[in-house]
Design a protein around this nucleic acid. Sequence first.
DNA 1: CGATACATTGAACAAATTCAAAGCTGGTGG
DNA 2: CCACCAGCTTTGAATTTGTTCAATGTATCG
Lengths: 213, 213
Amino acid sequence: MKNLKQMAFFADFNDEDMKRLSLISKTKNYYKGETLFYEGDEPKYLYVLLEGFLKIYKTDYKSHQIFLHQFSPITFVAELTCFENIPYPASSEFVTDGKVLKIEYQKFKDDFMSSPDISFKVIKSLTGKLKIMSQVLHQETVLTSEGKVAKFIVENGELFGSIKQVKIASILNLTPETLSRILSKFRQNNFVEFNEEYHLDFYNQEKLKEFYE
Amino acid sequence: MKNLKQMAFFADFNDEDMKRLSLISKTKNYYKGETLFYEGDEPKYLYVLLEGFLKIYKTDYKSHQIFLHQFSPITFVAELTCFENIPYPASSEFVTDGKVLKIEYQKFKDDFMSSPDISFKVIKSLTGKLKIMSQVLHQETVLTSEGKVAKFIVENGELFGSIKQVKIASILNLTPETLSRILSKFRQNNFVEFNEEYHLDFYNQEKLKEFYE
DNA sequence: CGATACATTGAACAAATTCAAAGCTGGTGG
DNA sequence: CCACCAGCTTTGAATTTGTTCAATGTATCG
């Protein structure tokens, strides 16, 4: 359990606190590809992602995944559903092998939530989630496909070459075809340059920003 | 200031608390149509909507409004931006005349946030916002236009006749034309029936749900 | 009555997806 | 070492979904 202390949230727990926490929780390991919960499920535990990467997505009427976010350890996952006792609003799948702390929420609430420190950190965790959702909403409602790609280049350009375009397309909720067409358009207009390893050599930040600002 | 007590948040404030609050805040009146803040602005105060209805929206690249939510009193508005010190992620406009409590956030945080009661209620307010955003995101990313309309009929059918279709269209982020076409399609398939006053007389919930579940 | 806003309908248009086909590339096994 | 295969990328054409533009119809309210 000692790695919990890495989490900002539990950083100032003392040994006594950690012991109490361990009494109301247990860890579970998952393999890459396994699902932690599905959209619509009822929450049973308060989850803390301890190891591995967890993808959050929705499924549309065509059974296509809509990518929302990828969580890195260590963080609470979907705590909203516990606090509000509502079904999960999205599904989650391990992108790598991983480990999760499953906390009995009601006991956690009774035992820990009265502490101002904890409360404040729960607030921080929730505002973090709100920020993420706000960004996703912005991306999916106000940006065009070109805007999404332009923003991704400016903010995550280094990922070109290290991850495949199909992956980037799925992060941006675009088809690989659309991404390819937009990139070749950007290339033709000299907004970007790629080297032979698909790495981004250059981008015209000013021109690209016009697509999303 | 006594109406603050109507807000669940301040319900159990005593007179002393209220006095302290009044020292770090002031109220301001707004007319219908006025803007409280624009997307991108830096937050200056923690706002509490005391009276009136406040519309939250984003603006897309075509300068079209994307409707997100309409707040009713009494509630915090955009508290996230204070907690995280980030720009407003959306704009807001009064739909009616209204009144707002402007609280100096830093002092509120210092004076009040240490109380577990307050913290817990801030958490509730944040989870409420997360739920709203989750619904908006669902509506805008996974539902089709038909799905949006079907869901609106089932969940808000009584509003037909009392508000105009243009208004419904803007709530659903559809054009009036699209809404009209979908409604006439639903009428033709006998999924819904309207009377001569545009009131919803009947809907086939089962059929309609197929569009959004 | 007439003006103004709202609703409906059709046709053209736009953005992105889907489907299909053809290159490319990198890794594996013979 | 090379050939081949599976997965990725690119490109074109068709399709889909919803918007835009334009015209017409319908209410409502001074």
